[in-house]
């Protein structure tokens, strides 16, 4: 297994996947810095809550596209080079599917770690008054990483099945819009059925905006554990279905 996983990393040499993820990290950092620059003293004081909410919102918009690109970079080399018919004489098809997913998951993990680093950096630079609640740090991971894994799974299946990578990339762009809409109608149960809707469904920080004082107040919302369970169930079902389709239906 380790030997096979090693080859996954050998295959993506010069694919510039690190650069792709790095570019999104820089973009998000620039976006957050811009978003927070005119914040009031109250908002800076409550900076961690602002970060948890804003990062999740930005992830909803940007991550579907980044994940589509990531999955495409990981899978299209196999499609372009007709390598499956060679690889599948040396390793099981299902394992190849798993290892691709695992490789993508490692990049997403690094991305989330970079986001934590950005938050700590902003906290140190701006001096957030209220400390971060440890459970919020965990919720951030559960919300953003788990939602992203579902998207990675979806994009990997699409990238394996479509020779033309425009289709999976278009699905990623569509996902960005769908995810954004989910924040405007967070109560609608339909978002449980749409993979890009889970970032908003699992949001645990909310806010009110007072028109008279023009003050935004952030507050804790209960974490949506049933939503998380639904997401995990969808990931499990999606993984089983995607893997089965790849093993049995993907023509070599």
């Amino acid at each position: 297994m380790l030997r096979e996983w090693k080859t996954e990393w050998m295959k993506i040499r010069r694919r510039k996947i690190g650069l792709l993820v790095g570019a999104f990290v820089v973009l998000i950092f620039a976006w957050m810095t811009w978003a927070i620059r005119d914040s009031s003293k109250e908002q800076i004081y409550d900076g961690w809550r602002v970060c948890f909410l804003q990062f999740s919102l930005i992830n909803t918009i940007l991550l579907p596209t980044m994940i589509a690109m990531l999955a495409s970079r990981l899978c299209d080399a196999e499609i372009k080079g007709n390598t499956l018919k060679l690889l599948c004489t040396m390793e099981k098809k299902g394992r190849l599917f798993d290892l691709k997913l695992l490789t993508g998951a490692v990049y997403l993990l690094l991305f989330i770690i970079a986001e934590y680093a950005m938050m700590f950096l902003l906290s140190a630079a701006l001096g957030f008054g209220r400390p971060a609640e440890p459970r919020h740090l965990i919720y951030f991971f559960l919300e953003n990483y788990t939602s992203s894994i579902l998207l990675l799974l979806l994009q990997q299946v699409l990238s394996f099945f479509y020779e033309n990578q425009i289709i999976p990339l278009a699905a990623g762009l569509f996902g960005s819009f769908a995810g954004l809409f989910s924040w405007f109608l967070p109560g609608a149960p339909v978002w449980y059925l749409i993979p890009w809707g889970y970032y908003s469904k699992l949001a645990y920080i909310s806010y009110t905006w007072d028109e008279a004082t023009r003050i935004t107040t952030y507050y804790n919302a209960p974490f949506n554990f049933p939503g998380l369970l639904a997401l995990l169930a969808i990931i499990a079902a999606g993984y089983a279905a995607g893997r089965y389709l790849f093993v049995t239906r993907k023509e070599i």
Partner: peptide
């Protein structure tokens, strides 16, 4: 060992 139809390769490597 096998070589089926067109060759399999990673063009970027």
């Amino acid at each position: 060992g096998s070589l089926i139809e067109s060759p399999s390769y990673y063009g970027h490597l």
